[in-house]
């Protein structure tokens, strides 16, 4: 089985890109399944079901979705093997832009959109910096110049990544993208023993443990302070 991890800011078009790409993969007779990771709510699983794609969703609730991802990925891989998939896709939204779910030696795709602003490539950190492929969406509604500038920013932040434009609405570019996702020779039976590409945050503070009161005396553990210069307290 092949495994690909998709990641990207909320509403960047991950699901639309994956759906269009699966159409092309189906044309090649491949069996594709998806596991969607989200925080509080998603009904994207219904969109996958509608086109006959085996799908599971995982809601992390009060936990960080990427931490939840790592704690569950092995079980998810076993589910995919059980369903006899040729390709298993995991989809997760990066929320704080600090974690990224990419695993060493497992294909990693970051989806980001042209509308998100010129400094976004710089802002989203490990999710973009450690990806193998970057898919840029929503190119049909911004100018050619903005597309070129945005792509060049992505290239500056992650020069190794393969950059592609895919339109999640019309599917333009999705066939081409699909040819890069599946590799005959790849066969993953487990991700046990593999490692994340980038560590999850080491921070652990009183608020992680349920503290709700505000004030210095309630702040324990790993605390970082904002630099307000002279005007600071």
């Amino acid at each position: 089985m092949n495994l690909v991890t998709f990641s990207g800011p909320p509403s960047s078009g991950k699901t639309a890109v994956i759906l269009k790409t699966i159409e092309s993969l189906h044309d090649r007779g491949l069996k594709v399944g998806v596991v969607k990771f989200d925080c509080l709510y998603t009904d994207d699983d219904l969109l996958y079901k509608k086109v006959g794609v085996p799908v599971k969703k995982g809601l992390s609730g009060s936990l960080c979705p990427d931490h939840y991802f790592v704690s569950n990925i092995e079980e998810v891989v076993q589910w995919g093997l059980d369903k006899e998939l040729d390709l298993l896709i995991t989809e997760s939204a990066g929320l704080c832009n600090r974690c990224s779910p990419y695993i060493k030696d497992v294909k990693a795709v970051c989806v980001i959109d042209n509308l998100s602003g010129i400094n976004t490539p710089r802002k989203i950190g490990p999710m973009l910096k450690t990806a193998d492929m970057v898919v840029i969406t929503k190119g049909d509604i911004v100018s050619q110049a903005e597309r070129e500038v945005f792509a060049s920013k992505v290239n500056t932040v992650n020069p190794d990544a393969l950059v592609m434009h895919v339109n999640g609405l019309t599917g333009q570019g999705s066939f081409e993208f699909s040819t890069l996702l599946f590799d005959e020779d790849e066969d993953i039976n487990t991700v046990k023993g593999k490692k994340l590409r980038f560590s999850m945050p080491s921070a652990m503070c009183s608020y992680c443990l349920g503290e709700t009161r505000i004030g210095e005396e309630h702040q324990l553990g790993n605390v970082r302070k904002i630099d307000l210069g002279d005007s600071g307290v």
């Binding site: 190119g139 049909d140 509604i141 911004v142 100018s143 050619q144 903005e146």
Partner: peptide, 12 residues
């Protein structure tokens, strides 16, 4: 290929 269409807008 560069593309120009009626639907494109500047967003910056």
């Amino acid at each position: 290929v560069a593309q120009l269409s009626q639907n494109m807008n500047f967003v910056m």
